[in-house]
């Protein structure tokens, strides 16, 4: 399986505090990966580094078959290269409709001139409708997304991510604050997505991770503590120490 993203030897510190310490991580095409770890393990910072929000002090972040370094690119360029990110809090554009949100995310030229001249074609509209169907918001297409429930917003955001057609999806705690049914739906969405692209899910909730049924990476104090199946890592003594206290 070819490698899509390779992070090697990355460190970053804030005001002397080492948030990421010599972290190495790789993920191939069409792979689902869960990243777990206690608070302050550097999960979010890891995502910040991959998406270009934070520049690491040292290390390499290599992307795709052409082995491009992501460190020299800004957030927009990285996103255009095919890295999609879902934030912890649902961040959709609340005073725009579900359809507008999806259209904005749709994989189309991003330059301002083409955006200014853009008119949604029938295919685009069909595509948004299909996405809305997938995330269960077909009825809400014309509604302002601010009116959606918390879970619906989470889905909308996932739908926007899918519309972007990224090659790598970074998902930060997608199940937070969801009802059990909503969680199930979310799991399905992620599993479906992971068939065609790489998906990294950061999650606290072990139950949710178990349902994803994938390889798990455990982060602790900014570096990888263990990697393997969920059963494998949960039987690891170090992981137990970290999670249950020593």
């Amino acid at each position: 399986m070819s490698t899509l993203l390779e992070v090697s030897g990355v460190s970053v510190s804030f005001d002397g505090f080492r948030a990421i310490n010599n972290l190495s991580f790789r993920i191939g095409e069409a792979e689902l990966r869960a990243v777990i770890g206690p608070n302050g393990a550097g999960k979010t910072t890891f995502m910040d580094i991959v998406t270009g929000k934070t520049k690491p002090d040292e290390g390499r972040v290599i992307w795709g078959e052409k082995s491009i370094s992501l460190l020299k690119m800004n957030e927009a360029k990285i996103a255009q290269a095919g890295v999609g990110r879902k934030f912890q809090k649902p961040t959709v554009f609340e005073d725009q409709t579900v359809q507008e949100n999806l259209l904005m995310a749709l994989k189309k030229p991003r330059s301002w001139l083409s955006v200014l001249a853009y008119k949604p074609s029938t295919t685009d509209l069909d595509q948004t409708a299909a996405l809305a169907q997938e995330i269960g918001l077909l009825d809400a297409l014309k509604r302002n997304s601010g009116e959606l429930s918390h879970g619906q917003k989470q889905w909308l955001e996932i739908g926007m991510l899918l519309a972007q057609e990224p090659r790598l999806l970074l998902v930060d705690e997608p199940a937070a604050g969801m009802t059990p049914q909503e969680r199930e739906h979310t799991t399905d969405l992620l599993l479906e997505a992971a068939k065609t692209r790489a998906v990294v899910v950061v999650e606290h909730d072990m139950e949710f991770v178990r349902r994803l049924n994938c390889k798990v990476t455990v982060l602790h104090e900014g570096s990888v503590l263990a990697e393997g199946s969920l059963d494998h890592v949960t039987s690891n003594q170090e992981v137990i120490d970290v999670y249950l206290g020593r």
């Binding site: 929000k53 927009a76 996103a79 005073d95 725009q96 949100n101 991003r110 301002w112 955006v115």
Partner: peptide, 27 residues
């Protein structure tokens, strides 16, 4: 149109627009 969507997006959450792949600064 979509341009309006993007600029209103910038107003409401600049970082999100950036992660959608739009060059916020250019807009």
């Amino acid at each position: 149109g979509k341009f309006g969507s993007v600029v209103r997006g910038i107003r409401d959450n600049e970082a999100r627009v950036r992660f959608l792949g739009y060059s916020v600064e250019t807009y």
